[in-house]
Computed example of a mutant assay.
Amino acid sequence: MSPQTHQRPSRRGLLALGPGLAATVALRPVAAGAAIRTESTAEAIRRFAGTAEIQPGRIRLDLPPLVENGNAVTITVTVDSPMTPEDHVRRIAVFNDKNPQPNVITVSLGPASGRAAVTTRIRLADTQRITAIAETSDGRYWSTTADAIVTLAACLEG
């Protein structure tokens, strides 16, 4: 092979070099705490709601208070809304305090959605507070929070 030609080593070639080298190039898991969080939960919420006042009420967040495995936690967010063209939910967002990314999910809705409810599964890195915020068609924001105790953390690489 000439100096200008770069050939990527094959997996088989690396394994043939012996277990010492394979252990050297092996990827190590990265704990969720080691991930760099680029913004706080408060900053993510401000990015979602701007300078609008966020009021408690009209929204319910259902998640188990004790989570055995943080890899797949079912949550349901429901907003009290008639979902008419005059009065409906535009967006629902879910935020967390300890995952690498504070904004877990943002869903856009409209009157044709029929119901202001979202069910999904999320990952939780650790015991933490979850916040759900809904934006209504009149430009107001509503919020609620729930705490989850996680016994087996998720958000681990590897």
Rank of each mutant, 00 (worst) to 15 (best):
M1V: 12
S2M: 05
P3Q: 11
P3F: 04
Q4F: 06
T5V: 15
H6Q: 13
R8I: 03
R8Q: 11
S10K: 04
S10N: 09
R11G: 13
R11M: 07
R12V: 15
R12L: 06
L15N: 03
A16W: 00
A16H: 07
L17D: 00
G18M: 10
G18L: 00
G18T: 08
P19L: 04
L21S: 02
A23T: 00
V25H: 00
A26K: 08
R28A: 09
A31K: 02
A32G: 09
A35K: 15
I36V: 11
T38P: 07
T38R: 11
T38V: 10
E39R: 13
S40T: 13
S40N: 13
A42D: 05
E43F: 15
A44T: 03
A44Y: 01
A44F: 11
I45V: 00
R47I: 03
G50I: 12
G50N: 05
G50W: 00
T51R: 10
Q55P: 04
Q55I: 05
P56C: 12
P56T: 12
G57A: 07
P64S: 07
P65E: 01
V67G: 08
V67S: 02
E68N: 04
N69H: 05
N71D: 07
V73I: 08
T74S: 04
I75A: 05
T76I: 02
V77W: 07
T78G: 11
P82Y: 13
T84I: 14
E86G: 15
D87H: 13
H88N: 04
V89D: 09
V89Y: 05
V89M: 09
V89F: 06
R90N: 12
R90T: 04
R90G: 10
I92Y: 11
V94W: 08
V94E: 06
F95C: 08
N96L: 01
D97K: 10
K98Y: 01
N99D: 03
N99S: 07
V104D: 06
V104Y: 10
I105T: 06
T106Q: 09
V107A: 14
V107T: 15
V107E: 12
G110D: 10
G110F: 05
G110Y: 09
P111I: 00
A112L: 07
S113N: 08
R115D: 10
A116M: 03
A116E: 02
A117C: 10
V118G: 07
T119H: 01
T119W: 00
T120E: 13
I122M: 10
A125P: 03
D126F: 00
D126C: 06
T127I: 05
T127K: 13
R129Q: 14
I130Q: 01
I130S: 06
I130K: 08
I130H: 02
A132H: 14
A132D: 13
I133F: 07
A134L: 00
D138N: 02
D138W: 01
D138C: 03
G139E: 12
Y141R: 08
Y141W: 08
S143I: 02
T145W: 11
A146Q: 09
A146L: 03
D147M: 14
D147A: 05
D147R: 11
I149M: 14
I149N: 13
L152K: 15
A153R: 10
L156K: 10
G158T: 05
G158A: 11
G158Y: 03
G158R: 01
